[in-house]
């Protein structure tokens, strides 16, 4: 059984399942670091998945991916408008967006494809194979016929670390989430930073959705996100709001999902393996293992304190 658990096939599957969680979790980091909780990730993934499929169906996979990203950003803009400008509770807005996204996707699927639950098959980006490595048998499943979005996602981890740490934008974004009042007194436009953080997170979530529909499955399937937006949120919390941490958490969660999908163990019902990410997140936010350390002002809307 252990053999099977750590087989190359298994690893490849785990990595494929990691990607959507990882991408959305990276997005969540931008939003949360700017001070805004983004429960709407799930919805942004859903619209990303649908519109990517539609774009790919009509104009090919590259346009499809762009459509997915754009759809995520559009939904994110609503979140930004509602929470940053109108100062509505961030959770409420996120929940509403998830409802809205589910409705939009089913509605569009029915009226465009004539089917509520799936789209026709759509083409993805050309698959990649690293020839020399593919010769090595135990590496083969990992390096043959994989989506180009997989390496890109891992590159984006590095990019995120770099942006947050070494750019003016990253510094200001984090300041908006840690101490918006201080940022404001230093002449930083907190609202602009938060808009940026949320919309970037929408782009990432949209990309995650696009990966799911056109790269991973080859079509849009109703409910295909299966709460991955929430798992991404969990991965981000578990990774303590850092890109590297979120990457490891996403790998862990992807691995758990691969196990539950392949049902390689009957020792534990696969449904219980599926709940591992959720359980871990509850344990982390309850402070049982280590202190969870979110940005100081995440979740609170900023209002200028003029009397």
């Amino acid at each position: 059984m252990l053999n099977e658990l750590f087989s190359p096939d298994m690893m490849a599957s785990a990595i494929r399942l990691t990607i959507p969680i990882l991408l959305a979790a990276l997005g969540a980091i931008y939003s949360e670091r700017s001070g805004v909780v983004n429960i709407g990730l799930e919805g942004m993934m859903v619209v990303g998945a649908f519109w990517a499929a539609w774009g790919s169906f009509n104009y090919g996979p590259v346009v499809g991916i762009l459509f997915g990203i754009t759809a995520g950003m559009v939904l994110a803009s609503i979140h930004a408008l509602v929470t940053v400008t109108f100062k509505v509770n961030q959770i409420v807005s996120g929940v509403a967006l998830n409802v809205l996204a589910a409705g939009i996707s089913r509605f569009s699927s029915l009226s465009i494809f004539g089917m509520a639950t799936t789209s026709p098959h759509v083409s993805g980006l050309p698959k990649m194979t690293i020839k020399p490595l593919a010769e090595i048998s135990w590496l083969k499943p990992l390096v043959t016929e994989f989506s180009i979005l997989i390496p890109i996602s891992f590159i984006l981890v590095g990019v995120t670390v770099w942006v947050l740490k070494y750019t003016t934008f990253g510094l200001r974004l984090r300041a908006a989430g840690e101490n918006p009042e201080a940022a404001d007194t230093l002449g930083i436009n907190v609202f602009k930073m938060r808009y940026a953080g949320i919309i970037i997170s929408g782009a990432f979530a949209g990309l995650a959705g696009a990966y799911l529909s056109i790269e991973h499955t080859g079509m849009y399937v109703e409910g295909m996100t299966q709460g991955k937006g929430y798992i991404a949120l969990a991965a981000m919390i578990f990774g303590n709001w850092s890109a590297i941490g979120a990457m490891f958490a996403a790998l862990l969660f992807g691995f758990a999902e691969a196990i539950s999908l392949r049902r390689i163990t009957t020792l534990v019902p696969y449904q219980f393996i599926k709940i591992i990410p959720y359980l871990l997140t509850i344990i982390v936010v309850s402070g049982f293992v280590k202190k969870s350390d979110p940005p100081a002002k995440v979740g609170t809307n900023y209002e200028r304190g003029e009397g």
Binding site: Y166, T167, T168, F169, L171, R172, A175, A182, A183, L186, G187, I188
Partner: peptide
């Protein structure tokens, strides 16, 4: 913070 000297946004 807020008065960064940067080269095209890179600190």
């Amino acid at each position: 913070l807020g008065a960064e000297n940067s080269n095209r946004g890179v600190l």
